[in-house]
Computed example of a mutant assay.
Amino acid sequence: MKKNVLLTGGTGFVGKELTKLLINSGYTVSILSRSKRENTESIFYYTWDIQKQTIEKEAVLNADYIIHLAGANIAEKPWTSKRKEEIINSRQQSAQLIYSVLKKNDKKLDAFVSASAVGIYGAVNGEEICTESTALGEDFLGLTCQKWEAAADQFKKLGIRTVKVRTGLVLGKNDGFLNKLTPIFKWRLGSALGSGKQYMPWIHVEDLCAIYLEALKNPNMEGSYNAAISDSTTNAGFSKTLAKVFGYKIWLPNVPGFLIKMVLGEMSKIVLTGRRVSSAKVQQLGFQFKYENLEETLRVCLGK
């Protein structure tokens, strides 16, 4: 029988791509969703309500693996106190709901794999290259990711192999971060943000999904792994390369950091800060990135 993978956040950008890869790799996929959807030959849909802490427990009990991608988008709304609470709770409470079903029913998984983010190292700028053993940030992004990973770590108490994927900026076709930038750069209005020196660790969605697949298949993969290319791309470099893909050189000055702070408030840290990240640990497992050159990756994503 085919192994079943339960996905949370399966209807999002990464979730959709990962679902395709899992099915093509011989797995069946179950997806937890807030609303009921019609099952297909390879995808089974179940409902849950994180706030009410309700779930169709069959989704968990039928799973061999769980990949936990669910979490409120940190860049979708301003960081009010209420929004910050939603961002944290969407990650912690969703994992807790799954954990409670597993524990209550004495259900064992082959692995529990959770999304995390390179934001765990803190919203600061600097030249240090962050490895998985680098000191963790104590700001909102750092603490949010720490709580996210702590929610995953409790699965180890059940004797389940647990993997945490610290994701960088995800690039792909017709979705994600590039979707917001494309109109600006297409009309030749693109420019760097703030100093432009902040690092932008990135990864193509295909490589990210391949890392999740590796986490299922490789019994030696356990703990935290950075999922980003180690190429030291800065915001200025990213902007320059994206403009080149659209056939021009940036002519506008950098957008001043104080203006971005005025518009976005504390959330401006997402775009005005960024750290260098090492992917050596996942590569030591034998994992090879398909997309390592930024310009070539952007051309693939944008069909240029």
Rank of each mutant, 00 (worst) to 15 (best):
A70I: 15
A70V: 15
A70L: 07
G71L: 05
G71S: 07
G71C: 02
A72P: 06
A72H: 13
A72T: 12
A72Y: 15
A72I: 11
N73R: 02
I74L: 15
A75E: 09
A75Q: 08
A75I: 14
E76I: 03
E76V: 06
E76H: 09
K77C: 05
K77M: 09
K77Q: 15
P78F: 10
P78L: 14
P78D: 09
P78K: 11
P78A: 11
P78C: 12
W79L: 09
W79E: 01
W79C: 06
W79I: 09
T80W: 09
T80V: 11
S81N: 13
S81E: 14
S81G: 04
S81T: 11
S81P: 02
K82Y: 12
K82P: 02
K82E: 15
K82T: 15
K82D: 12
R83G: 05
R83K: 10
R83A: 03
R83W: 09
K84S: 09
K84E: 04
K84A: 02
K84W: 11
E85C: 12
E85S: 15
E85L: 13
E86D: 14
E86M: 12
E86F: 00
I87T: 05
I87Q: 02
I87S: 01
I87M: 06
N89A: 13
N89T: 13
N89Y: 07
N89Q: 11
S90V: 10
S90C: 03
S90M: 07
S90W: 01
S90L: 04
S90D: 01
S90Q: 01
R91Q: 08
R91G: 03
R91K: 13
R91M: 10
Q92Y: 14
Q92D: 06
Q92V: 13
Q92M: 13
Q92I: 14
Q93I: 12
Q93R: 11
Q93T: 12
S94N: 06
S94P: 00
A95Y: 06
A95S: 13
Q96P: 02
Q96L: 14
Q96Y: 08
Q96F: 04
Q96D: 15
Q96W: 04
Q96G: 05
L97I: 11
L97F: 04
L97C: 03
L97P: 02
L97V: 09
I98S: 00
I98P: 03
I98K: 00
I98E: 01
Y99S: 12
Y99I: 11
Y99V: 10
S100V: 05
S100N: 15
S100P: 00
S100H: 04
V101Y: 07
V101F: 08
V101S: 02
L102W: 02
L102A: 04
L102P: 03
L102K: 04
L102F: 10
K103M: 10
K103A: 12
K104C: 08
K104G: 09
K104Y: 04
N105E: 15
N105F: 10
N105I: 11
D106A: 14
D106S: 14
D106L: 11
K107E: 00
K108P: 06
K108I: 04
K108D: 03
L109C: 08
L109D: 03
L109E: 05
L109G: 04
L109H: 01
D110T: 09
A111V: 05
A111K: 01
A111C: 09
A111P: 00
A111N: 01
A111M: 05
F112V: 05
F112H: 03
F112W: 10
F112S: 05
F112P: 00
F112L: 05
